[in-house]
């Protein structure tokens, strides 16, 4: 299997890993968002709590979620490995660099944007995911953990909402390059389809983070 380790440690192989894990996370975001929308249902959080219960107890979902954790970690670790390699490829930098002349802001700052998302992830997981699994959360009327109340409490704090929104902006920039870049790395570059993929990537990068951000904003004003 040395060919596999050869492949995955080559620059192209590492990018392939970034691309595949990235695409998986892109799909995950849609699923996650669909769930989040239940926060807006006018039922005191019953639907959302039931959904949260399902997501933490269904064996298939559970299995998938381990994959998700792994992918997030691989995406992060690989990006660090690549960043180190890339840094080494230019030990002495330029005095003056005019990056804006030849490339987009996002494409040049995927690492920083990724770091913002990482920080968000830590906060986010600590507040909700950790609480859901190991925290002491009261039960709702239907006998499910009342995660809704936890979320609602968090989204009542203006600073929490502000951080959330800011991080979604970071995510938007990350996605605006990451979406189409993932396809390019996979070798999908076609005169007919690439323009569409690029547009779709931009639409996705705006729509999904905006939708995510809208939830805490709405809940903040409702509270």
């Amino acid at each position: 299997m040395s060919w596999l380790s050869d492949t995955l440690t080559s620059t192209i192989g590492r990018k392939l890993v970034m691309s595949l894990t990235g695409l998986f996370l892109i799909i995950f975001l849609v699923v996650h968002l669909a769930g989040n929308f239940q926060l807006l249902a006018d039922d005191g959080g019953l639907a959302f709590n039931a959904y949260a219960k399902f997501m933490t107890s269904n064996p298939i979902i559970k299995f998938t979620s381990y994959g998700l954790y792994a992918f997030i970690l691989i995406h992060i670790i690989m990006s660090i490995a690549l960043a180190v390699k890339n840094k080494n490829a230019r030990p002495v930098g330029y005095d003056k660099v005019k990056g804006s002349a030849n490339s987009s802001f996002s494409s040049r700052n995927m690492g920083i944007l990724g770091f913002i998302i990482f920080v968000f992830l830590v906060i986010h997981l600590r507040n909700f995911w950790y609480e859901m699994h190991w925290g002491s959360i009261p039960m709702d009327e239907a006998g499910n953990k009342d995660l809704y109340a936890v979320v609602n409490a968090a989204f009542a704090e203006w600073w929490y909402v502000a951080i959330y929104v800011a991080c979604m902006v970071g995510l938007a920039f990350h996605l605006s390059h990451g979406f189409s870049s993932a396809f390019q790395t996979l070798g999908v570059n076609h005169s007919k389809y690439t323009p569409f993929i690029k547009k779709l990537g931009i639409v996705y990068a705006i729509l999904i983070p905006a939708a995510f951000a809208s939830i805490p904003v709405i809940m903040f004003f409702n509270s």
């Binding site: 390699k85 494409s107 189409s180 870049s181």
Partner: peptide
């Protein structure tokens, strides 16, 4: 040779 990896910034092609 120690070249870096591609981030698909497109700077190469533009320049």
């Amino acid at each position: 040779e120690g070249f870096g990896a591609c981030t698909n910034t497109g700077a190469c092609s533009a320049e």
